[in-house]
Nucleic acid binder design. Sequence first.
DNA 1: AAAGAAACAGTAAGCCCTTACATTTTTATG
DNA 2: CATAAAAATGTAAGGGCTTACTGTTTCTTT
Lengths: 331, 331
Amino acid sequence: MTIYDIAKTCGVSIATVSRVLNGSAKVRAATRDKVLAAMEEQKYTPNPFARGLGLDSMKTVGILCTDISDAFFAKAVSLVEPNLRSRGFDVILGCTGNDPADKKKYLHLFLERHVDAIILIGSSFGEIFDHSHMVPATGKVPIFIINCNVKFPNVYCVVCDEAGGFCETAQLLAKGGYKHILYLYDRLTYSGKQKLKGLHEGLKKSKLEANPQLEIMVERTMSDAKNVVDKLLAEKKPFDAIIASEDILAIGAQKALVAAGLSMPVIGCNNSILASCSTPALTSLDNRLEALCPATVNVLLQVLEGKGKMTPSVTTFEPYLCYRDSFKKTE
Amino acid sequence: MTIYDIAKTCGVSIATVSRVLNGSAKVRAATRDKVLAAMEEQKYTPNPFARGLGLDSMKTVGILCTDISDAFFAKAVSLVEPNLRSRGFDVILGCTGNDPADKKKYLHLFLERHVDAIILIGSSFGEIFDHSHMVPATGKVPIFIINCNVKFPNVYCVVCDEAGGFCETAQLLAKGGYKHILYLYDRLTYSGKQKLKGLHEGLKKSKLEANPQLEIMVERTMSDAKNVVDKLLAEKKPFDAIIASEDILAIGAQKALVAAGLSMPVIGCNNSILASCSTPALTSLDNRLEALCPATVNVLLQVLEGKGKMTPSVTTFEPYLCYRDSFKKTE
DNA sequence: AAAGAAACAGTAAGCCCTTACATTTTTATG
DNA sequence: CATAAAAATGTAAGGGCTTACTGTTTCTTT
């Protein structure tokens, strides 16, 4: 079942069939209909490999994340995949884990596969660009990063102003009378740095001092966050509110508080499904994946359309605090 | 940068280069090394499209799930993707949503793309096979289903004995003196039916009557589960324990109980990350994705290896109850 | 109705690789 | 060493599609 069969049954040449397949040139309406009908009837579908050979594109985009079982990445992928699919693109997924070498390896695999574009989810992929030798000859394939801001040729970024969000959140807490904010974070990626910067800014604006003893790096697991807070409580370290760079860390902190019979404002970040599941329901800074993801797809389509004529860009969205029980709106 | 370039710099024919590329035939060690070195040096990678054209395979497997933002599917994908990747396969992901027509469409897309195999995650894909006209000419491409049991040519199933798990769980509750078990479930897919069957069996073995009024179908959301339980409580429907077909439903139920100041055993299913996040931490029936997923990949590799010589099979694992605070182990 | 322009359709040359078959080189055997 | 057998390599024919270029219709225009 090839283009030749269709051509034969229609009494036209394969070039004509190819043209109606691609809409690449004018074909008389009557001819086109005849061809289309034949395709329909014979259930013809073009061989993607042959197509790819000719066009050097198979309408595929590669998506990379560190761990799809993490709610943040899963949500992002769930927002991107159907969107791209509806535009006729297939999505190849890669879960790299945290090793930069693996990230590089996956990137190479995607390039070898001649994907049309690559989407990186999460700011940990920013690392790849820190050392340019890590980045393969990426000239041909545009790269789109969700939630990270790097300057690199042919790289397009879509981010959320997390610094601003953390700044405001800190001020909110300060306004509520909380002066000793415990900050739990997992990694100092681009995003991580932004959050910390925002926090400091917020404290400063509220005439509070940042306390390095209350800025603690933990593993991105509930249990580690809980253990750390358990220990702080045991040590009677004084803090009266908690912010975390991730919902899962905030939830761990909550567990520690509950276990200790304590209660204080806890605010997470990412507003993942975990936030609403936890008890008390977690107030969380929403980094607008619902906006970032479609925006990324739009930029991607434009770039692919314009065949790289676009200049690298950064698109920014504003986060918002999604209030739940763990920190109620005051007004 | 093609096979011709390598051939030329090595003074051999493209056939030889191709052979070392594929290990498909004997090549003198010296020649092979020379070719390999040239490839290395010139950073040659074969064009996957041309390769696909010749071999009709691009080492790709398609994975379908209804919603990757759901913890269950996300976990499954996170267990399958790196495994397949390490075997040299790329993974194309499809999130179909619940519409059977969309599932069929995705299946067709995968087939058009000539994937080497297709993995379906979750028993809702069993529906596709209910009406054989839904299933495309699937002769060539083997299909693997995680967590669903259907009999169909060229379909291989890897499942968890959820009926058994629910049976034992019901008996456990009965033994604990709980006689009115509320069962929340989302859909009566294959898996859903197994769970219900197991529940009934467990009740019967415990000399308890199943009560249809306490078997309630809800949406697969926390809020709907909560609302339903809220209403039941308001109506004073008598029940003294809760089992849910999904962690997220169990968590919704817990929320309702907490809100009403009540406490009773709550048991979820899937043992997703949500279970440990919820407060009280949710006891959950673990359906062994950690075992199912690697097993699926193994069967897949065998089938692809044997080029379809394997007969359709069902691989079964036993679930276990992961105890947490919402229902403590009694002994 | 003739001639030139514009629209459409066909021919054939790739795209890069795999592999059956033919040829040459190497090894083994008497 | 000659020669048959085995091993290594080369030749060339696809695999199914796109597209530049050429050839053929059809439509305008006067």
